[in-house]
Design a protein around this nucleic acid. Structure first.
Lengths: 170, 170
DNA sequence: GCCGCATTGAGCATTCTGCTCATAATTCCT
DNA sequence: AGGAATTATGAGCAGAATGCTCAATGCGGC
């Protein structure tokens, strides 16, 4: 898991983009994730073989990410969501990120521009739990400053449906 | 889609938490998202009926979110990822969030504590595209200030696998 | 016009699903 | 400990889906 890091753009070269048909299939899957290939083909007016081949390509081609993306952290007992920006003092080696990624409550970790160098998305059981986790973060080698922002409301949880809809065409 | 907003905690009351067995099933699904129920049952040493019932409950109980969470925006032609924090001047009504959510490139929208009131996760085709989108955001009613941070590297893309592993027990 | 690529339709053996029911095994409550 | 409720298991069965192959049919680029 520690070497899951990847530059945002390097993928583009290897990764074949999804076209309008792929987008339509993914949207149909969005409406009913457990739909069978046949059901999707019916709904979209496509041949079963087409949907089957497309889906296989999407899964094998890396356009689809891991399934745990769909699991709601609340359901695991972590109703609190926070964003922690951190500044790194020294040249950041593997050690810093490894230390941070060893914390299970860190569900996402990004290098960013701007005032902070690192942004961690953290889930917690409650505020006390969050305090414990931010302390853990500050103990990671090279982390000199941290700033915690609590998420009050997920107005729109992560979703690329709007992009898919645009991609799917009219 | 506009009314997908939900308080972080209200769910907990309705939502039955996933237990260790659920977590193991979800982890197995993570390893092979297209695995059949029978295959999962075999791998986990469970009865087919058990896995079938559990999965049905997870899907129907809201513990699993939409499928498009798994789609990589890069594959749709949006290699750039940015975080835009915004300050809201007036009492923010529906109009502000609706205006923002009408922008397809906004893939996530959060109300937060701290210096900004709103945080938008935005994907873009390139920096010029990002500039266009941030201007769109500033045109939304009530948005007075914005601060854009570019994501340089996704060290760890969103994943709750570590939480699942802890939940699954030893 | 020709070639490569994707879609389509068909067929077939195997596997899976959805469903029900009855029987253990667990957990929870008193 | 006793008993009840929930959960897991095993079996069975008709119908449906899958994985696979092959041949035919578009469709765009050169």
């Amino acid at each position: 898991m520690l070497n899951a890091a990847r530059p945002c753009c390097a993928i583009l070269s290897t990764m074949r983009n999804v076209d309008a048909l792929d987008a339509r299939i993914l949207l149909a899957l969005d409406a009913d994730p457990r739909a069978t290939t046949v059901a999707l083909a019916d709904r979209l007016g496509l041949a079963r073989n087409t949907v089957q081949a497309r889906l296989k390509r999407l899964e094998e081609g890396g356009q689809l990410r891991e399934h745990s993306r769909r699991v709601a952290p609340e359901a695991l007992g972590y109703p609190l969501l926070a964003l922690v920006t951190m500044s790194i003092s020294q040249r950041v080696g593997q050690s810093t990120r490894e230390a941070i990624l060893r914390i299970p409550e860190v569900v996402e970790l990004l290098f960013t521009t701007g005032d902070g160098d690192l942004l961690a998305r953290v889930v917690a059981r409650d505020t006390e739990d969050l305090h414990r986790i931010t302390n853990l973060l500050l103990e990671a080698p090279g982390v000199v400053r941290s700033n915690t922002t609590i998420v009050l409301l997920e107005v729109q949880p992560f979703s690329v449906r709007s992009l898919l809809e645009r991609h799917a065409g009219p």
